[in-house]
Simulated scan of single mutants.
Amino acid sequence: MVNDMKDAVHAVHAAAVMGLLPARPRVLALGEPTHGEDVLLDVRNELFRQLVEREGYRTIGIESDCLMGLVVDDHVTSGTGTLDEVMERGFSHGWGAAAGNRELVRWMRAYNEGRPPSERVRFAGLDGPLEISHAASPRQALTALHGHLAARVDADLLPCDAETLDRLLGDDERWANPATMMDPSESVGRSAEAGELRLIADDLVALLDAETPHLVATSSREEMERARLYGRAAVGLLRYHHWMADTSPGRMRRLLGLRSSMIAANVLAVAERGPALVHAHNAHFQREKSTIRMGDAPFEWWSSGAIVSAFLGEEYVFLATALGTIRHRGVDTPPADTVEGLLYGLRKDRCLLDPRRLAAALGDTPPSPRVSPWFGYAPLDPAHLAGIDGIVFVGDLPPN
């Protein structure tokens, strides 16, 4: 079977990726099966660089806070702030400490230097302003959206003034309390103030839509994009906080689904600019439902990729990354009867494969699912092959 696959193996290169596809997609999503590995970010950076230079992609988005990402976008497009400042303030989830992300930002800034705005590469955070343990205060998003509108429309159209908004928001620490994830009673998401803020956020977004002709005439395209981002973030955060205060059995599934839909909305928004490259965990970008088990409780929800694919159809392409070994995490040589085992047998350190050719080589004998001894790595699900447009395989991950 390995011999049957050798002519279907390609270098991980932009031309090879495009060769798998009928046309350049609007969104090309590259997933990874684990986080925090330098080699995977190096692979991403090189492939994305080629796609920018040869295929005209003009946005790169990663799995990081969408509001913090504005700091990075300002830097790569106009040089605002130092690289050290941007890596500290422009990323969530600890991503700013990753050498691969630092190199990505450095390259984007160098690429944009001296280019006209239409040719510059933009950066976007795709995630909501969320961490595993808590969600951020909606202050930044709400006050920025309110300020954008207050500067451009009549005051009597606004649902409240800035002072009322500040009073209702109160102390930011009470919103970001990490105890709320495990104890819904700690959440302020269903307080009277939070309820009023949800209505205000809804009214501000509705006003943004209603005044679009005037706002387009008095704002730059970038200002309008950011106002809509603030609206999405404000509404999404307040909705997320509301369900953090829920005590029903569906609470966790609802929160997981909300995060997924926030990522999808941000992906669709950057796709409106033009062709976009996005990077996150395989589980976010797959076309199937995502699943997770917490204790004895399994949870299932639609992935961001499934949502985006429902909107974009063939304009959405998903490349999944598969791995051979992560020995420093206890993940050794994959069993030969798994997808990873078959690919590992090709003896290629890095390669790109057409999953249709792989499925044909497998025939009527489905591979066994690989089981990881480490919770931080999710092997490729062989049942998902039909929903993958390309497989990037990396044989061995050395320690960072």
Rank of each mutant, 00 (worst) to 15 (best):
V17Y: 04
M18P: 02
L21M: 10
A23D: 14
P25H: 06
V27D: 03
G31E: 03
E32L: 05
E32V: 07
D42W: 05
D42Y: 06
L51H: 02
E63D: 13
C66R: 03
V76T: 13
G79E: 10
D84T: 15
R89N: 15
R102L: 03
V105A: 04
R109P: 02
I132L: 15
S133G: 15
A141L: 05
H146M: 07
A151Y: 07
D154W: 09
D154Q: 14
R167T: 11
R167L: 10
L168N: 02
D171A: 14
V188I: 14
G189L: 10
E193G: 05
A194G: 04
L197K: 00
A217P: 02
R221I: 13
E225F: 14
E225G: 08
G231K: 00
A233F: 00
G236E: 00
D246L: 02
R253P: 05
R259G: 05
R259M: 02
A269Y: 08
V270H: 02
G274F: 10
A276C: 08
H281E: 08
N282E: 05
F285Y: 11
P298I: 00
W301N: 00
W302T: 15
S303T: 03
S304N: 07
I307S: 05
A310N: 12
L323A: 09
G324F: 06
P334M: 12
P334I: 11
E340H: 04
Y344C: 09
G345A: 11
D349R: 11
D364Y: 11
S368M: 14
Y377T: 09
A383E: 14
G390P: 01
P398N: 10
